[in-house]
């Protein structure tokens, strides 16, 4: 019970801070919007091309925006050395990881939903009747992205350069997440029944399970000196 309380303590703290300062979600949302608008000018798509490129475009916006949120996740703890403050308490290191993972995922997911609204408005994309499917992909994809991202965020703040190291570490590792999320989203846009949708979910799910286990085990070592 204590363990869960400690995790919820971190989540509550992060949400209170976010509600007050609105740093992470706003930054992600605005940045994601910029990406979408720039894409529109970069490709100048016809309406038929839009449909084929939509899933990729959507996820590129999510992924680039997500980096901002993840960077913020541990650099907020770095200020005033709060991370060390948490390490002083009798809370297992893994609780810090899981708490931060939860809040990064929540913030990223919320900004994704806003981005999705704008996207649909601007590009006239129709996910008719497949909303739960879409949200499930977004949910699993976001968690997978944050599972490694939270760990790398903690790694990046331990270095001299902090901010720009995170995307360099993150992008090659999350390629399976990107492939599976984009493909599963693409399947949902097709007219016929969704073929292969659940296969892609399986890949996402196995990525999440494998890396969640690995990251929980490895997180302790990141805080070592």
């Amino acid at each position: 019970m204590t363990y869960l309380n400690q995790i919820f303590g971190i989540i509550k703290k992060d949400i209170t801070t976010e509600l007050r300062a609105k740093e992470a979600v706003t930054a992600m949302l605005v940045f994601g919007l910029m990406v979408i608008v720039i894409f529109n000018f970069a490709f100048n798509l016809s309406s038929q091309e839009q449909i084929t490129i939509t899933p990729g475009l959507l996820w590129v916006a999510f992924i680039f925006a997500g980096i901002l949120g993840l960077n913020h996740s541990f650099s907020a703890e770095h200020e005033n050395n709060c991370l060390q403050g948490m390490m002083l308490t009798p809370m297992p290191r893994s609780a810090i990881y899981i708490g931060k993972l939860a809040t990064s995922s929540i913030f990223m997911f919320i900004s994704e939903i806003f981005m999705l609204f704008f996207f649909i408005w601007l590009f006239d994309v129709r996910f008719t009747g497949k909303w739960p499917h879409l949200f499930l992909v977004m949910f699993l994809g976001t968690i997978g992205y944050c599972i490694v991202g939270t760990l790398f965020s903690a790694i990046a703040v331990g270095t001299r350069v902090r901010v720009f190291l995170l995307p360099i570490l993150q992008f090659p590792i999350v390629i399976p997440v990107i492939i599976a999320s984009v493909e599963a989203t693409a399947v949902l846009l097709e007219e016929d029944a969704a073929i292969g949708y659940f296969d892609w979910l399986k890949i996402l799910l196995s990525f999440n399970i494998i890396f969640f286990t690995v990251c929980v085990l490895l997180f302790d070592y990141i805080l070592e000196e």
Binding site: R20, E79, N81, Q84
Partner: peptide, 12 residues
């Protein structure tokens, strides 16, 4: 533990 770092969140 008390250090020169305060371990405090400024938005709380």
């Amino acid at each position: 533990f008390i250090a020169h770092d305060t371990f405090q969140y400024h938005n709380l």
